[in-house]
């Protein structure tokens, strides 16, 4: 029963995503609402993502230092932390934080609009609520998560630089040189590309759960909760697929 429900839901979300590509790029373009959503999901998430990135960089550096010191490899800390943050930790942590904050808020907002008939009201006033509410939010999450990830990576690396200087001395120039010289095309580009998919998953799942919320206020809570759970799970699945794909392309 649970399996068939999951399969049915996966199919429904896929159709919902198909509708996004079918309707989302046709005029009329809701540019003003898209910019507003970019502001909401991007700018307003920045403090949380920034703090998370800062702590991630600092903790990673402080915890790896004793182990690296045992091998006399402290000078490799910037390289290791840089690769870890840019390839994996930055994208995945930022995406999970993003799913928690934005996925739940989209699920709850659209869910509450559904149960109070506001979505129906849009429809009967001749507005396509899918385009106005869903397409703008999904586009905003898809475009903003990569930007947030890059900012989080930068903040995390700067935190790493500070953490190194807590117990030793290194210059910002040397730290940057160590990080950048170890990075290749195959480290940076796939890591950025996958965040577009993470952002799309958070947006489309949050919107789907909210758009089809039922059963009054209980349904709103369920929409918010299941949006976070499902999008977090999908982020991990997409991450696994990304690793496999980059491996097949010889980029790992």
């Amino acid at each position: 029963m649970a399996t068939s429900t999951t399969v049915a839901e996966t199919g429904a979300i896929t159709r919902f995503a198909g509708r996004f590509f079918q309707e989302g790029f046709r005029p009329r373009y809701e540019v003003q609402e898209l910019l507003h959503q970019c502001f909401v999901v991007g700018y307003q998430s920045l403090p949380l993502v920034g703090i998370t990135g800062f702590i991630m960089g600092m903790v990673l550096t402080l915890q790896s230092r004793p182990t690296m010191a045992q091998f006399g490899a402290e000078s490799w800390i910037p390289t290791m932390v840089g690769l870890t943050i840019i390839r994996e930790m930055g994208p995945i942590i930022t995406a999970l934080i993003f799913a928690g904050k934005i996925g739940s808020s989209i699920g709850a907002e659209l869910g509450s609009m559904r149960v109070t008939e506001q979505i129906d009201a849009m429809e009967v006033s001749g507005t396509n609520p899918f385009k106005y509410l869903v397409a703008t939010r999904v586009l905003a999450t898809t475009l903003m998560l990569p930007v947030l990830t890059i900012l989080s990576d930068a903040i995390g690396l700067f935190a790493s630089f500070l953490a190194i200087n807590l117990k030793g001395v290194t210059s910002l120039a040397l730290f940057t040189n160590n990080v950048v010289s170890a990075l290749t095309f195959g480290d940076v580009v796939p890591a950025v590309i996958k965040t577009f998919f993470f952002g799309f998953a958070v947006g489309i799942i949050g919107c789907y759960k909210g758009y089809y919320a039922e059963k009054g206020t209980e349904g709103v809570g369920q929409a918010a909760n299941s949006a976070v759970v499902a999008s977090s799970l999908v982020i991990f699945i997409l991450d696994l697929l990304a690793v496999q794909t980059t491996g097949l392309l010889g980029l790992n």
Partner: peptide
């Protein structure tokens, strides 16, 4: 959509945004 512009609907819950 064009037809709905000519037909108003007042919801029981009002459905104000």
């Amino acid at each position: 959509d064009q037809l709905r512009a000519k037909v108003g609907f007042l919801f029981q819950s009002n459905a104000l945004y």
